[in-house]
Simulated assay, not measured.
Amino acid sequence: MKRVSILGVPFIHTTMKDFIYLLQERIVQKEKTFIVTANPEIVMKANEDEDYMNIIRKANFVTADGIGVVKAAKLLNDPLPERVTGFDMMQELLKAADQHHHRVYLLGAEEAVLQGAMTKIVEEFPGVEIVGGHHGFFDWEQNDIASDIKRLEPDLVFVALGLPRQEQWIAQHFALFEKGIFIGVGGCFDVLAGKVERAPEFWQKANLEWFYRLMKQPTRLKRMLALPHFVFKVYGQKLKGKK
């Protein structure tokens, strides 16, 4: 499949609809899959951390989670068709899981948030089988999480540990598993559980979801500072004529 390289990160050229169809095929065929949903912050982190960049490049697919990535691809004359965000992807995968009775495991967030997210999934997608879950505050070296996931054999594993931990965790344990779609979903459990409000549809369609979240959570300002640096670096790539 076609990839679009932005600052060394290979984004898959796809729409949400086509990508969900692809993932459904991989679930049926039991093809183990590692997905990174990358926004400008993740791209900048990868450019600052060689080990993290190597993890990103080893993923099966990297999707454009953020309008900044889509705009950057257009600037580089190698446009992506649309955003393929982590939260929307999770929702679409849960819809499909509801129809096909897929098995789901959730890893991350506080215990109360994790339980709230599980409850929401059960309410909205009764056909989904939640086989297990674990909060995100665990001893990195001493835990049985990966072994439990291998034993439970979920079709979908949503990992909400934030960057870079979620991608690091998946990469570290990926070889242990025989099947499953593994995807880092950042703060999506908080939204599912109702702890964090997602931007209304108007803001999403106007590509201003990031600004809405900043207004609601001013503490995100430090993280948002990665965006102007990202724009500067993309212009540098354009001037060098690299893709």
Rank of each mutant, 00 (worst) to 15 (best):
Lys195Thr: 14
Gln217Ala: 08
Pro218Ser: 12
Gly194Asp: 11
Lys179Trp: 03
Gly184Trp: 03
Phe177Thr: 10
Glu201Ser: 11
Gln217Ile: 04
Thr219Pro: 02
Lys205Arg: 15
Ala226Arg: 08
Ile183Gln: 08
Ala193Gln: 04
Ile183Arg: 03
Glu197Gly: 09
Gln217Val: 04
Tyr212Ile: 04
Tyr212Phe: 15
Lys195Ser: 07
Met224Arg: 06
Phe202Val: 15
Pro218Arg: 14
Arg213Trp: 08
Glu178Lys: 12
Trp203Gln: 03
Ile183Ala: 10
Ala175Trp: 09
Val185Lys: 11
Leu227Thr: 04
Thr219Met: 07
Lys216Thr: 11
Ala199Thr: 01
Phe189Glu: 01
Ala193Phe: 05
Ala193Thr: 04
Cys188Gln: 01
Gln204Cys: 03
Ile181Glu: 02
Leu227Cys: 03
Phe202Asp: 08
Arg213Thr: 08
Glu209Ser: 05
Phe211Ile: 15
Met224Phe: 13
Gly180Trp: 13
Val185Met: 09
Phe202Gly: 07
Leu208Asp: 00
Arg213Val: 08
Leu225Ser: 13
Thr219His: 11
Glu197Arg: 14
Leu214His: 13
Pro218Gln: 12
Val185Ile: 15
Gly186Val: 06
Met215Trp: 14
Lys222Ala: 12
Arg220Cys: 12
Lys195Val: 15
Phe177Pro: 03
Pro218Ile: 14
Arg213Met: 09
Phe189Arg: 02
Glu201His: 10
Ile183Asp: 01
Leu192Thr: 05
Phe182Leu: 10
Pro200Gln: 13
Arg220His: 11
Glu178Gly: 07
Tyr212Asp: 04
Leu214Phe: 15
Leu227Ala: 04
Val185Asn: 09
Pro200Glu: 09
Arg223Thr: 05
Ala175Val: 09
Gly180Ile: 15
Val196Met: 12
Phe182Met: 09
Lys195Asp: 05
Leu208His: 01
Arg198Ile: 06
Leu225Pro: 00
Tyr212Gln: 06
Leu208Gly: 00
Ala206Asp: 00
Ile181Trp: 00
Glu178Ser: 14
Gly186Leu: 03
Gly180Ser: 12
Glu178Asp: 15
Leu221Asp: 06
Val191Pro: 01
Thr219Arg: 08
Gln217Met: 09
Arg213Glu: 08
Val191Lys: 02
Phe182Ile: 08
Pro218Gly: 12
Gly180Lys: 13
Lys222Arg: 12
Glu178Gln: 12
Thr219Tyr: 12
Ala193Asn: 06
Phe177Tyr: 14
Glu209Lys: 07
Lys179Val: 04
Lys216Leu: 13
Lys179Tyr: 06
Ala175Met: 10
Leu214Thr: 13
Lys216Cys: 12
Glu201Pro: 00
Gly186Ile: 05
Gly194Met: 10
Leu192Phe: 13
Leu176Lys: 11
Leu227Arg: 01
Ile183Glu: 04
Gly194Ile: 13
Lys195Cys: 03
Ala199Tyr: 00
Cys188Tyr: 01
Gly194Arg: 09
Ala226His: 07
Phe211Glu: 06
Glu197Ser: 14
Ala199Glu: 00
Gln217Cys: 03
Lys222Ile: 07
